[in-house]
Amino acid sequence: MASSMSLKLACVLVLCLAVAAPQAQGTITCGQVVSSLAHCIVYVRNHCAGGGVPATCCNGIKYLSTASQSTPDRQSACNCIKGVVAGIPGINYGLTNKLPGMYGVNILYKISPSSDCKSIK
Rank of each mutant, 00 (worst) to 15 (best):
K110D: 09
S65Y: 12
Q69N: 11
Y93R: 08
N106E: 14
N79A: 03
K8L: 15
G60D: 12
G50D: 04
C117K: 02
L7R: 15
L108D: 15
S35N: 15
I41Y: 07
T66A: 14
L15I: 09
L99E: 09
K98M: 13
V53N: 12
K121G: 14
K62Y: 06
L95Y: 07
H47Q: 13
S3K: 06
T27L: 05
D116C: 03
C78Q: 07
A10Y: 01
T96L: 10
S119M: 00
P100Q: 08
L9S: 07
T27I: 04
A2Q: 12
S119I: 00
S3H: 12
A38P: 02
S65R: 08
G101E: 05
G26P: 08
M102G: 08
C80E: 01
Q32L: 01
Y63N: 13
I120F: 01
P22H: 08
T27V: 11
T71A: 15
L99M: 08
G94A: 14
I111Y: 00
V14K: 00
A86Q: 09
L15F: 06
N59K: 12
S3Y: 04
S6I: 05
T27W: 03
C58H: 12
P54N: 11
P113R: 06
A67Q: 11
L64F: 12
L7W: 09
G26V: 03
Q32R: 00
L9T: 09
V44S: 13
S76L: 10
K98G: 07
A18F: 04
C30N: 12
L7H: 10
Y93H: 10
V14C: 02
K110G: 01
M5F: 05
A2P: 09
S6Y: 04
T96R: 06
N59R: 14
K118A: 14
Y93I: 01
H39E: 15
T71W: 00
K110M: 00
A18E: 13
L108I: 08
T56A: 15
S6Q: 06
S36I: 03
A49Y: 10
C80K: 00
G31I: 03
V19K: 11
S112V: 00
Q32G: 00
P113T: 06
Y109P: 02
Y103P: 02
L95I: 13
V19P: 01
V85Y: 05
C80W: 01
N92P: 08
S115W: 01
S114Q: 04
I111V: 08
G94Q: 08
A21P: 06
Y43A: 13
L64E: 02
I88A: 02
S119E: 02
N79K: 03
C80P: 11
I111R: 01
L17H: 02
G94D: 15
L99A: 13
L7Y: 12
K110I: 02
T29Y: 01
